[in-house]
Design a protein around this nucleic acid. Structure first.
Lengths: 338, 338
DNA sequence: CCTCCTTGTGGAATCGATTACATGGGATTG
DNA sequence: CAATCCCATGTAATCGATTCCACAAGGAGG
């Protein structure tokens, strides 16, 4: 693999001149530039990004730590982040935390070791030492979807979706269809999205004159299995709920598993709805009503904010809104978007 | 962010000694080692991976270029690759080609610029100049799932799944259920998996005394839309097929879209099966029969082969086998695995 | 007691780029 | 015509690590 000095030798110039051509510095004579470019082409030379990063102290790389790659919401997010970054000539390194704090820390550490220019995180848990360290070290950082609180973390912009109004619409929809005993499979209390969705659900119920009793709140962990366990508990209740809202799509999958395993039917025996819309919801039996996040916009806004920070501009938090997509899983023949 | 010389100063030793401690070189006096370690802890020092890579000429990083992150098969593959790599102390940088050759080349180029130690590719297309260049440059390289041919590429190990016998089982299953007019939504002819699945399907049909007529082979591109288009063409035929086999899960999704849009029913009007099994297939209406690849094993085997190459050991191609998972989409009440 | 070897440590070169500073020659200007 | 400036280029320092080589001190062996 040729280095810059090989190019210099072949073009009969110094390495400084080659570097100037490559970074198109103005003061290089046109014919010299030609010679250098020719040498570059002949040798198939590509600048060593490692060496360049060491010298310039920037890697043009963003780190993205997500909670779970297998969750379609996050893969879609990752994809839109990569797209947005590529457009601005940045690369993205993805770390999958699998909803495990220690894995999240592992990735933050590796990314910092690699001296990435900025960190985009959808945090898994409250107390991440590495994240605090990163913030303290002055690494540009942006939270996406979820966020955590902590010393030095209050200045970190948060790019997120506000689901309150869509959740209110969902409760409205459920009530209109005659459901009265609503339950929720919550996400981990350590995550903001976990708490927030429960709060929004509770407020919406109150607005419709309903209460959310403790045994209608199940603790899940955003994984399918937990959705299944919580649903089992719900259905074992003396008066089981007649509608279940899962705080993410994987737990909805688990809920469906359990409902079906008991020979019950959606929506006749129990209605089902989920936070996060994914392509497969159109094809489940029945199609699932969901609160849809504007994933693409979320990814783009995060990258914009992070790169603003990286390049020394101020960045602000952004809150987008979710919307309800009505399908058959709550009882109506067919709602808005099919 | 402290550098090695800060640690050296604080511990009252030279940078050479610090480096020796960090790479646990034997000849360092125990008390010196203690002092250095204490300084490291005090400063929260972490070695700069960029500088280290420049010097040692290795990054302990693998590049993984996949055809489409949104395809659950590939995210699962990516995840297992990352798991396997992490266990061996390697990181993985994922590039998503989105089934677009130019994006694939972009990623291969960026990864090479970063001087990754090895490249794991599931190639999108036949003629990738960068991939040939990478192979020629001597970068350790392994193909996973798909492969391409070309000058200097014949030595590249291929880690893949052989679907022939599972596809034969599928055809057997379809025939047993009375289907006779079988059609296939093929992948791009430029990909090996595209061609191979058609071949296997054709051979299996022949074995059961059936022919695969040209108008029962639809050209897809592994994306949902193409599955829909091809299915439309099938259903417009004077004598439409009574069973459709999609060569990947996204095209199966598209096929379902189209079938449902026409008010037809699976499996009564037309049976459906797919290559690649994914969790959602259990919950579609009806649950979809699929050929399942051992994705985790595929990822692990790829990493093992690639790291063998990276560390100078010889590596061999591996072929695993797929198996049929029977569900209701072809007509049976309920087969083996639900 | 002198020589030789071992052990622990420091100095300095090195990896491949970028960039501040130096330099020489030609053009501009008073 | 001399002084000045600018343009094009080269020399060398630098980024943060690793590692070869040199060297000093101490122990072993004759």
């Amino acid at each position: 693999m040729p280095a810059i000095k090989d190019v210099a030798r072949r073009a009969g110039v110094s390495v400084a001149t080659v570097s100037r051509v490559l970074n198109d510095h103005p003061s290089v004579r046109p014919d010299t530039r030609e010679r250098v470019l020719a040498a570059v082409a002949d040798l198939g030379y590509r600048p060593n990004a490692v060496a360049r990063s060491l010298r310039t102290d920037q890697t043009r790389t963003l780190g993205l730590v997500i909670s779970d790659v297998l969750n379609p919401f996050f893969t879609e997010l990752a994809r839109s982040v990569e797209d947005a970054a590529r457009e601005l000539d940045y690369s993205v390194i993805i770390g999958n935390a699998d909803e495990r704090p220690e894995l999240q820390d592992h990735h933050v550490r590796t990314l910092m070791d690699r001296r990435i220019d900025g960190l985009l995180v959808s945090p898994t848990d409250g107390g991440s030492p590495m994240m605090l360290a990163a913030a303290r070290a002055g690494t540009p950082m942006v939270f996406v979807d979820r966020w955590i609180e902590g010393e030095g973390l209050d200045a970190v912009p948060v790019i997120r979706t506000d689901g309150r109004s869509a959740i209110r619409d969902l409760v409205d929809h459920l009530c209109a269809l005659g459901h009265r005993r609503l339950a929720i499979i919550a996400g981990p209390a350590a995550t903001t999205t976990g708490r927030e969705r429960v709060d929004a659900f509770r407020s919406a119920l109150r607005e419709f004159g309903l209460a959310l009793s403790e045994d209608h709140i199940g603790q899940g962990d955003f994984q399918a299995d937990s959705g299944r366990r919580v649903t089992a508990r719900f259905l074992d209740l003396p008066r089981p709920p007649d509608a279940i809202f899962a705080a993410d799509n994987l737990m909805a999958l688990g809920a469906m598993d359990e409902i079906r395993a008991r020979g019950l039917r959606v929506p006749d025996d129990v209605a089902l709805a989920a936070f996060d819309d994914i392509p497969w919801f159109v094809h489940t039996d029945p199609p699932i009503t969901a609160v849809a996040q504007p994933t693409g916009a979320l990814g783009h806004a995060s990258v914009r904010a992070l790169i603003d920070l990286v390049e020394g501009r101020p960045a602000e938090s952004v809150t987008l809104s979710a919307r309800l997509v009505t399908r058959r899983s709550c009882g109506e023949p067919e709602g808005s978007t099919p």
